[in-house]
């Protein structure tokens, strides 16, 4: 089974990279652009075949290493 972990900054946490991307898009002529936020995508291959157990395992991975709960939220998608 594959898991995709989407990691993004929590609301309220400044994202200077997202801001810079927004400025660059504006300078390319794209208009009507609101806030831009940049995140991370991590793909994991899992031996586990039980979806519930897999989700549990990936949640632990997120809590312990993949995300920093002080500044980041995460979503887990099982594929």
């Amino acid at each position: 089974m594959k898991a995709r972990v989407h990691i993004r900054f929590k609301e309220g946490v400044l994202d200077p990279q997202g801001k810079a991307i927004g400025h660059a898009l504006a300078s390319l002529g794209f208009t009507g652009l609101g806030e831009v936020r940049q995140g991370k995508l991590i793909e994991l291959e899992l031996a586990e075949t039980d979806r519930e157990k897999a989700r549990e395992q990936v949640e632990k991975m997120c809590e312990q290493l993949l995300a920093n709960p002080v500044i980041e939220n995460y979503d887990i998608e099982l594929v």
Partner: peptide, 9 residues
């Protein structure tokens, strides 16, 4: 707390 990218990038 945590340390983020500098505001100037």
């Amino acid at each position: 707390g945590a340390l983020l990218r500098n505001k100037t990038l």
